[in-house]
């Protein structure tokens, strides 16, 4: 495991913001750390970076504890926490040069990073004049500068336009698949994470509600049959009478729990024989977004 926490808890004063967190982030994974705003994501990240002192429980990074190995652990991590930390009075390039100086990284690496995040054109512009998306990209370049094994990113696509989000996603997938990095990425948006994550942890109110691979997450989401028909209410009543479990009815669609392909065909036949027009019918995974909401809302 690249990150392993056991019983990690943290209090701000009397308020417990992290409750007995057991994170397991395998090597070579993109771990999506999901949770609504205020769930404790940033606090967890600060604990993982030793910016907050561990009060209860333990943190192992690369199977080492911070106690005696702070510098060796931190030298293998690149991080972007909340808004990127950028000196507004320096240019984008100078920001990278300053970090390169501190990390003793060669000057070539600065140019490489600038082209990686496509900031060559704006390299000599003051970072204070950058758009939010450019700042975010510069933040990612700063995090990648020392070629870290583990990348910890806190909401890295905040403020990015759709193109920017796609670029970041592709970059992260490339880093993991081609350069054997591990990425720990927090977000409050599931859609953003489900497209790239291999593993997911869902945190709410400081507690880990779910942890596992994306496949595990999909497995607990029950597939459904979505039927598009002309009179959804009557059709739904008919299906109910025939002992199918209708889970949802909208103006356009009926949703029925999926059991098999044959069952789908039977429903289709049934509806047509009873004079309903079926415009479309098919198996559908329950939206992970809904699952995410149900996991985080059930708890509330």
């Amino acid at each position: 495991m690249v990150i392993r926490t056991e019983g990690l808890s943290f209090n701000f004063g009397n308020q417990q913001v992290i409750k007995s967190l057991n994170l397991q982030v395998p090597e070579g994974s993109i771990y999506g750390f999901l949770g609504p705003n205020g769930a404790g994501k940033t606090t967890t990240i600060k604990l993982l970076l030793n910016l907050l002192k561990t009060q209860h429980g333990s943190i192992h990074i690369f199977e080492q504890e911070y106690h005696n190995n702070r510098i060796s652990i931190l030298s293998q991590i690149g991080a972007l926490i909340e808004q990127p930390a950028i000196y507004a009075h320096l240019t984008g390039k100078e920001n990278l040069q300053n970090r390169a100086l501190l990390l003793q990284v060669s000057a070539n690496r600065v140019d490489e990073m600038l082209s990686l995040v496509q900031l060559n054109g704006a390299a000599n512009k003051k970072a204070g004049q950058y758009s939010l998306g450019m700042k975010q990209r510069l933040g990612i370049a700063l995090a990648l500068l020392n070629d870290p094994k583990l990348l910890i990113l806190d909401e890295p696509t905040n403020g990015l336009d759709p193109n920017g989000i796609i670029e970041i996603r592709e970059l992260l997938i490339k880093l993991v698949s081609q350069h054997q990095k591990t990425v720990f990425i927090s977000s409050h948006l599931l859609v953003e994470v489900e497209r790239m994550a291999t593993h997911v942890g869902i945190i709410d109110n400081g507690e880990l509600r779910f942890q596992g691979s994306v496949k595990d997450l999909e497995a607990i989401s029950h597939p459904q049959i979505r039927i598009e028909t002309d009179n959804t209410v009557d059709a739904a009543n008919l299906l109910n009478r025939k002992h199918y479990t209708v889970t949802d009815v909208t103006d356009q669609y009926i949703f029925v729990n999926y059991t098999s392909r044959d069952q789908t065909a039977q429903i289709n036949t049934l509806l047509i024989q009873n004079g309903y027009q079926v415009f479309s019918i098919g198996k559908q995974q329950k939206d992970l977004e809904k699952l995410f909401l149900s996991i985080t809302q059930n708890a509330a």
């Binding site: 600060k46 970076l49 030793n50 910016l51 702070r70 510098i71 060796s72 931190l74 030298s75 991590i77 991080a79 926490i81 909340e82 808004q83 930390a85 950028i86 000196y87 507004a88 501190l102 990390l103 700063l142």
Partner: peptide, 18 residues
């Protein structure tokens, strides 16, 4: 203030420097 302004304390203290 250079760090307060840029919100860079967190990145300064997560560098591999004591």
């Amino acid at each position: 203030n250079i760090e307060h302004n840029a919100d860079t304390w967190k990145s300064l203290f997560s560098l591999p420097i004591s």
